[in-house]
């Protein structure tokens, strides 16, 4: 028999745990309730003060003092929600007020913290207020990937040449999170990155090139032609696929010639991307090469080639009809399926 004394001890421990849990659960609930009411009241007052300061353009010291005395979390909430709705001079005034109530100062201190979670919070605050502070530039090379990624997000709104240069070197960041944030930031910076990115791609290979090509593909433009041509012959499959996509996005005659060559690439992903690109460009001169791709061993390549032929128009349709009567049943089947597609579906699929 299990010792009753043992059961009693276990039971007592369990009761103690349960009582503790219940007490914490309800006490936390009560705290949440009271805190919520207090925060709501404070937030409402703070919102009004901040709105006055931002919209009137004159400084009311009472409002500044009120905002300065606020709890940090309420300050953050109010400034961030206001920041979302402001641009230009409005945001400039908001930054001034944030500076006056020492919010920026506190964010800077957080950025210098030894704890990555605090650095992250600090730079998020600076980032969402679009504060151009050199302290965040330092965080682009932080040891924590989340902090680097957040710094990159901040950099999207600060497109100066030195920052772009740093961002480009970060395309080789070992952390996927940081790399993704850098790519997104470069894309958000807009056409200003075209020239430095193209120059970067002309001299780099491997992971940074692959990451950069994704951005280049989204931006487009013939400035990337040289780099895309060079990288489309790279030994890395990922780089070749990305370069092919850039060539397709360029949509230039010279890129079309290269794309036609890439239809013979050993990798099916590259061949499919090349066929897709030629279709998008409606490059009828590549009709015969695309028709050849209908016999490809990869279904994806056959599909893209078929859709590309359909996109080309009458010459493509001729190749497709020929393929139906041909001896290759895979080519014939794909050609038939492509020709059976209604116009809208063909366009959507292509």
């Amino acid at each position: 028999m299990v010792d009753r004394h043992f059961l009693n001890i276990v039971m007592l421990v369990e009761i103690a745990l349960l009582v503790l849990a219940v007490a914490v659960f309800f006490a936390h609930g009560l705290w949440l309730f009271l805190n919520h009411r207090r925060v709501m009241r404070l937030t409402e007052t703070a919102r009004q003060s901040l709105a006055r300061l931002v919209t009137r353009g004159t400084i009311n010291l009472e409002d500044i003092e009120l905002l300065r005395q606020l709890r940090h979390d309420v300050q953050v909430t109010v400034f961030l929600e206001t920041s979302r709705n402001l641009t230009g001079s409005g945001k400039e005034r908001l930054r001034f007020v944030a500076h006056e109530v020492l919010l920026i100062e506190r964010a800077r201190k957080l950025c210098e913290s030894r704890l990555w979670t605090r650095r992250l919070r600090g730079e998020r605050l600076l980032s969402r207020m679009d504060v151009a502070d050199p302290i965040v530039v330092k965080l682009l090379s932080d040891e924590n990937a989340a902090v680097r990624a957040q710094a990159a997000e901040w950099a999207a709104a600060q497109p100066s040449p030195p920052i772009i240069a740093t961002m480009l070197t970060m395309l080789a960041d070992p952390a996927t999170q940081a790399r993704f944030a850098v790519q997104d930031a470069l894309l958000r910076m807009g056409s200003i990155v075209t020239e430095p990115l193209a120059a970067f791609l002309e001299t780099h290979t491997g992971l940074p090139a692959e990451s950069g090509l994704r951005v280049a593909g989204a931006i487009g433009g013939s400035r990337f032609l040289l780099a895309a041509n060079r990288l489309s012959a790279n030994e890395n499959v990922g780089v070749r696929v990305a370069a092919t996509n850039v060539l397709a996005a360029i949509g230039d005659v010279s890129s079309a010639d290269r794309l036609a060559t890439l239809l013979k690439d050993p990798d099916s992903g590259v061949r499919a991307a090349a066929a897709r690109g030629l279709g998008r460009m409606q490059h009828w001169q590549s009709g015969s090469q695309l028709a050849e791709c209908l016999r490809d061993s990869s279904w994806q390549v056959r599909r893209e080639a078929g859709l590309a032929l359909r996109a080309i128009g009458a010459p493509g349709a001729l190749f497709l009809r020929r393929a139906i009567k041909g001896d290759d049943r895979f080519a014939s089947d794909m050609a038939q399926q492509v020709l059976d597609l209604p116009e809208a579906a063909a366009t959507a699929a292509g």
């Binding site: 059961l7 745990l17 349960l18 849990a21 659960f25």
Partner: peptide, 26 residues
């Protein structure tokens, strides 16, 4: 004894469930 045994067996689970509620709450 049966009651004590039953409560002991299920007691810790109940306490842990209560802690889960705290986790959700915080």
């Amino acid at each position: 004894f049966a009651g004590l045994f039953y409560l002991t067996a299920y007691g810790l689970g109940t306490a842990l469930t209560a802690f889960t509620l705290i986790l959700e709450d915080v």
